[in-house]
Simulated assay, not measured.
Amino acid sequence: MNAPLEITLISCAVLGFRHGLDYDHIAAISDITSVQQKASTAMRLGLLYALGHAAMIALLGGIVIMFQLSLPPRLDSWAERLVGLTLIVLAIYVLGSLVWGSPRAIPPSRAALIIRGFRKLRRNFSSAVSGAPMTSDHDENLNYTGPLAFGVGVIHGLGAETPSQLALFLLAANLGGIAKGIGGMAVFLAGLLVMNTLTTASACGLFRSAAPHPRAMRVFVGLTAVYSFVIGCVFLLGSSGRLPPLG
């Protein structure tokens, strides 16, 4: 292995490990794990999120390497702003549920909020078309499922992965061929999965220790919502590159 290729592969591994600690990963994993009743379920769903994220990166990276392409930077810019807007809206909803909801109730996950919003819009539309009074349903048990957690990871892999990171795979391919490019992507994904596993395990421990204490749990959920709001504002302004690195 020549020195430039070796340096590139090491850079891919380090970047993958650091990317697993990005702001959007922390927000997603904390949301998924905070609403699970069992630590084993929280760990499984957190890992499914990581696998979904890795699967999308593998797909994008494969396209970049095989077809010698670079993804347009503008695509990442629009995705960044969309993620930011979503984080802001959901953070406000969560904070509102903390202020006006039951003092002992834990706010629902963002996944539940999205599903509830979709169902409410569907009921409104059906009522307007048919003229029948709108009925309500109770979604108290809505939560993340395996496919949903995996799907969230896929979406984050599509919207948060930057062209500059994928360019490393292309650089590795240019230095040593397609096989070396695939190798660069593999070590990147390995670093990503290791960090996401550690992050998930840490979040599981934090929220499980707070679960028997509703007030403490609400504090943690509130801090998560504030964090999401601030990060959402930064993403919406297209300034995520100015955030200090977390690792």
Score class of each variant (00 low, 15 high):
residue 31 D to G: 01
residue 31 D to Q: 04
residue 87 L to A: 07
residue 37 Q to S: 13
residue 11 S to T: 10
residue 14 V to S: 08
residue 146 G to R: 05
residue 223 L to P: 14
residue 203 A to S: 09
residue 126 S to M: 14
residue 188 F to A: 03
residue 137 D to Q: 09
residue 221 V to H: 01
residue 74 R to S: 12
residue 225 A to E: 01
residue 44 R to K: 13
residue 57 I to F: 03
residue 172 A to W: 06
residue 153 G to K: 04
residue 65 I to Y: 00
residue 192 L to Y: 00
residue 99 V to I: 15
residue 206 L to S: 02
residue 244 P to Y: 10
residue 138 H to N: 11
residue 76 D to R: 09
residue 1 M to R: 11
residue 171 L to R: 14
residue 91 A to D: 04
residue 193 L to Q: 01
residue 156 H to I: 02
residue 60 L to Q: 10
residue 120 K to N: 13
residue 37 Q to M: 10
residue 32 I to V: 05
residue 203 A to T: 02
residue 108 P to F: 01
residue 206 L to F: 14
residue 162 T to I: 11
residue 8 T to D: 03
residue 30 S to A: 13
residue 243 L to I: 13
residue 122 R to F: 13
residue 136 S to G: 08
residue 236 L to A: 08
residue 179 A to L: 11
residue 163 P to C: 09
residue 88 I to T: 04
residue 31 D to V: 03
residue 184 G to N: 00
residue 219 V to T: 12
residue 199 T to N: 10
residue 94 V to R: 08
residue 85 L to K: 07
residue 236 L to W: 14
residue 100 W to P: 05
residue 86 T to I: 14
residue 2 N to I: 03
residue 21 L to M: 08
residue 238 G to M: 12
residue 164 S to W: 13
residue 77 S to Q: 14
residue 18 R to K: 13
residue 196 N to Q: 06
residue 165 Q to H: 13
residue 30 S to E: 09
residue 84 G to P: 00
residue 113 L to P: 02
residue 64 V to A: 03
residue 46 G to Y: 03
residue 146 G to H: 05
residue 158 L to M: 11
residue 90 L to K: 00
residue 144 Y to P: 02
residue 3 A to K: 12
residue 38 K to R: 15
residue 5 L to E: 05
residue 171 L to E: 10
residue 201 A to N: 02
residue 53 H to K: 03
residue 162 T to Q: 10
residue 224 T to C: 12
residue 233 C to A: 13
residue 220 F to N: 11
residue 196 N to W: 01
residue 247 G to N: 10
residue 157 G to P: 14
residue 16 G to K: 03
residue 217 M to E: 06
residue 129 V to I: 15
residue 92 I to W: 01
residue 55 A to M: 09
residue 242 R to W: 15
